[in-house]
Write a protein that binds this DNA or RNA. Structure first.
Lengths: 344, 344
DNA sequence: CTGAAAGCGCTTACAG
DNA sequence: CTGAAAGCGCTTACAG
């Protein structure tokens, strides 16, 4: 009986395997320079004892916590869900754990909350989601503490700070191209709020596509919006009461597109028969409404997986000359064509 | 200069404050028996040095990790979001951190994944959400490891295992009462899948309310469903083509209620003019559809807060004679009356 | 009310 | 290819 009480420690494994604890440590950390037979013997004992090294001991002695932090402030619930799905799975594969913290973007004690996480837990890296990844106070606190970060979909990239994002301009261009290929020429666009960079990017993509097809952008067909259901509904009411109605509306996010759907229904306009509608985000609701919404799926889970990888690898690479281009990754999105768009 | 390199340790604080590290430890852990002036002096130095005790060292020495684990398997994204919101905030207030792990309910290596979390991290407690909280394998693994757990909305309570839930029967009763008070008598009900206990509970509440008002439950007005949009839509098609239509439909979750809305629209029936519709869950979509859905809000964030508290307090109380009734908490829900229901 | 000593379970240099 | 020693930064008994 080697395990008298509690769970086995590295000492139990070493004794049982007839080696020193240092050798057990080498095997567990995949360090080179261990004879294969020794390695096998150790692994056998590890298995038999169901031994797992204790994170707190490894962390204290080795300076790595095997913890990745995720900071978020209530972005749409679905966003958090996908981020976590991607992040926890990749963390597990790499032997890490994910610690989450929900912060208020303008909490008075934001700095203290971050300090608490960083100083007490010492995570090996931190993932920041919007809008926290654009908060100067948050970024400063993290930089001071020397905690490696990856920004997910930040407003704009920061030199030297890793980030992952998708290409909003290109995606908006693709969705506009789809509408054009369906024969639409009078295509309306509902913008997002001016203070979010995605708004400008999506609008840019929309205009690019029109121009590429020699379609003159009509200012009358561009309405402001706020990325909310109500703003989409109101914008649609404006657009659909124009003397010459658009045949398609590209709402630059799904919540607004749902508003457009509601407005069309209110006005007795059939979608997609009399009006095509496209959104952006692929929110869970997008597939549930009637008709199901054509939209763009953001690679959220993949971005989270990538963020974890960058953090873990970055730790290995230990700084040094990292190419700036390598620091800012752009992941492919996916056009989701459903029933809300149709050829005219 | 006391901090030559890296962040300050308890030794730095002790030296600076002119006391032993044991005294610093006492102050930080709110242990009694420290002179007030000594305490103040220590706290001043702690503040000045921005000192935070390192979790790994506390954990290794003290046997408490200050980590709470959250295990989930893709319940609706909104559910996870709310659980986390509630849990992380309460953890922060109590000096804990939340580690999340997304598991597959029927992964072949489920046991290993749990072991990894429990043995490596040694969380002080674990929160389980459906359907993991009903998975015997998960429960067994956790019991063996001696990790305290709280089950969130389990199918049924287990003696000796703490749980938090809402009262589905009562909530369904209330929503049915609302419909009855609006003058409805022919009220249809769409059931959930038979393998979920919430299905039976909600149906029970529905029947209770009818009986209390001397309304004979009509088998023709009860349709099976699967808690999905499509099943709700199909059930509604059945119900609304009956020779004598119901004047109200109570779908036992929101996704199905959205299906009912779609079906009604398809059939040219105005809601709530010709048909009242009620759901259950208060999903984010419920407020966005047209008309906004009358439903029941589950106190998800509050349940998570409570779960954290039970875990942290349980650790203090150190087992002993805990009242079984105290172990299973029922939190109040909230009726959300919106526009999809109207007096007939 | 306060402190000196031991120890938690690992990893990091450093030897051989 | 393998190991003995020191130490990470705290808390737990144990003294006084």
């Amino acid at each position: 009986m080697s395990t008298r009480r509690g769970s086995p420690t590295i000492v139990d494994v070493a004794r049982e395997a007839g080696v020193s604890i240092k050798t057990v440590s080498r095997v567990l950390n995949h360090e080179p320079g261990v004879h294969e037979s020794t390695r096998d013997q150790v692994l056998k004992v590890v298995e038999a004892l169901r031994y797992r090294p204790k994170q707190s001991a490894r962390s204290l002695a080795g300076g790595r916590s095997f913890l990745i932090g995720l900071l978020y402030y209530d972005p749409s619930a679905i966003f958090v869900g996908s981020v976590q799905q991607g992040a926890t799975v990749r963390c597990r594969e790499l032997g890490y754990h994910l610690v989450v913290e929900s912060l208020h973007n303008d909490a008075p004690d934001l700095r203290q909350q971050i300090d608490r996480m960083v100083l007490a837990l010492r995570p090996d890296g931190m993932i920041l989601t919007p809008p926290l990844c654009d908060n100067p106070e948050v970024l400063a606190a993290l930089r001071e503490s020397g905690t490696p970060c990856v920004l997910m979909s930040p407003e704009r990239d920061i030199r030297g700070v890793p980030s992952v994002r998708m290409d909003d301009v290109h995606a908006a261009e693709e969705i506009t191209n789809l509408l054009i290929s369906l024969g639409h020429r009078r295509i309306a666009f509902i913008k997002g709020p001016a203070d979010q960079s995605a708004s400008a990017a999506r609008y840019e993509g929309f205009v690019n596509a029109l121009r590429a097809h020699d379609i003159q952008p009509d200012p009358e067909l561009v309405q402001p919006g706020a990325f909310t259901f109500a703003s989409g509904r109101d914008a649609a009411h404006q657009l659909l009461s124009r003397r010459q109605r658009p045949t398609a509306v590209f709402a630059s996010n799904d919540d607004m597109a749902l508003g457009v759907l509601a407005a069309a229904q209110r006005l007795g306009l059939s979608v997609p028969g009399e009006l095509s509608v496209a959104g952006f985000d692929d929110s869970p609701t997008a597939a549930l409404v009637w008709p199901p919404l054509t939209t763009v799926r953001q690679p959220v889970a993949e971005m989270a997986r990538t963020a974890v990888e960058m953090l873990v690898q970055g730790h290995r690479a230990e700084a040094s000359a990292v190419d700036e281009a390598e620091l800012h990754k752009v992941l492919p999105h996916e056009l989701v064509v459903r029933d809300s768009t149709r050829a005219r």
